[in-house]
Amino acid sequence: MGRWTDRLAELGIDLPGVVAPVAAYVPAVRTGAHVYTSGQVPIVDGKVAATGKVGAQISLEEAQQHARTCALNALAAVDGLVGLDSIVRIVKVVGFVASAEGFTGQPAVVNGASELLGEIFGEAGQHARSAVGVAELPLGVPVEIEMIVEVE
C-alpha cells in the first residue's frame, strides 16, 4: 500500500472498479506526466445511480453525492491505468451538470467532487476547475466529472 491507498482506507472509502466505457473511448489516457480521464458518470455496481436534472428531479445535495461518485470513478480510471499511488496532484477537474431551467448552482454541485479530492489528497488535491451547466448528459445522468492528474 502507499500513501493514497492508505488514506482511502483511513477514510473508509472503497475505490470502485473501473467503469466500462459506454461508447468508443477508453477510461483514461496517460501522456507524459499526466493522466486525462474520460468523463465519468454516477455508475455504481454497473448501474446508473440516478437520472434527471439538478434543480428539478435531483436536489443539490443528491447532485453533490453523485459528483462524489463520479470523482471516485475517475480515480478508479487513474488507478486502473497507472495506480492510485502514482498520483502527484490533481491538476484540473471539469464538472458538467444537467441543469433545470434557472438552476445556477453548478459550482456547488461540483464541490461534491472537489471536497472529496481535498479529503483524500489534502494540498495535492487542490485543483483548477470548471463547472458547466448543460441541457443533457449521457444516459440521462445529472452529473459528469473528468479530471487531469499529474503522476510520477
Rank of each mutant, 00 (worst) to 15 (best):
R7L: 00
E10I: 11
G17I: 05
Q64V: 01
I145W: 01
Q106G: 04
V94W: 07
V78P: 08
S130V: 04
V78R: 10
V82N: 11
I90Y: 04
L117Y: 04
G12W: 04
E115F: 11
Q64H: 10
C70W: 08
P107N: 03
G83E: 02
A24S: 15
V93D: 06
G83D: 09
Q40F: 03
F121I: 10
Q65P: 06
F103V: 08
A49G: 06
F96R: 15
V29Y: 03
A135C: 05
V29E: 13
V109I: 07
G80Q: 03
T69N: 13
V134S: 10
S38M: 14
A108H: 13
V143A: 05
A63S: 11
G46H: 12
D45Q: 15
L139R: 14
R68E: 15
A67T: 10
I87H: 06
V44P: 02
V132D: 00
A135R: 14
G125H: 08
L116W: 04
G133F: 02
K53T: 07
G39C: 10
D45S: 15
V88R: 12
V143P: 04
H127P: 05
I13W: 08
V97H: 08
A63L: 05
V110Q: 05
K47Y: 06
V29A: 00
A108I: 13
G32V: 12
P107K: 09
L11W: 00
C70F: 03
G46C: 07
V26I: 04
T104A: 12
A98S: 14
G112L: 07
L75V: 06
R68A: 07
I58Y: 08
A76Y: 01
V44K: 07
S130G: 08
D6S: 15
L72V: 13
A135Y: 07
I90R: 09
V109C: 11
A77P: 04
V41W: 01
A49C: 04
A77E: 10
N111L: 14
S99E: 11
A113Y: 04
K92P: 02
V132K: 00
L15S: 05
V134I: 15
L60W: 09
R129K: 07
S130T: 15
D79K: 05
D85M: 02
G52Y: 01
L8P: 08
V18A: 02
V54K: 00
E62I: 05
L116P: 13
L15W: 01
T69R: 15
V88S: 11
V44C: 00
G46E: 10
V54W: 01
P21D: 02
A74P: 13
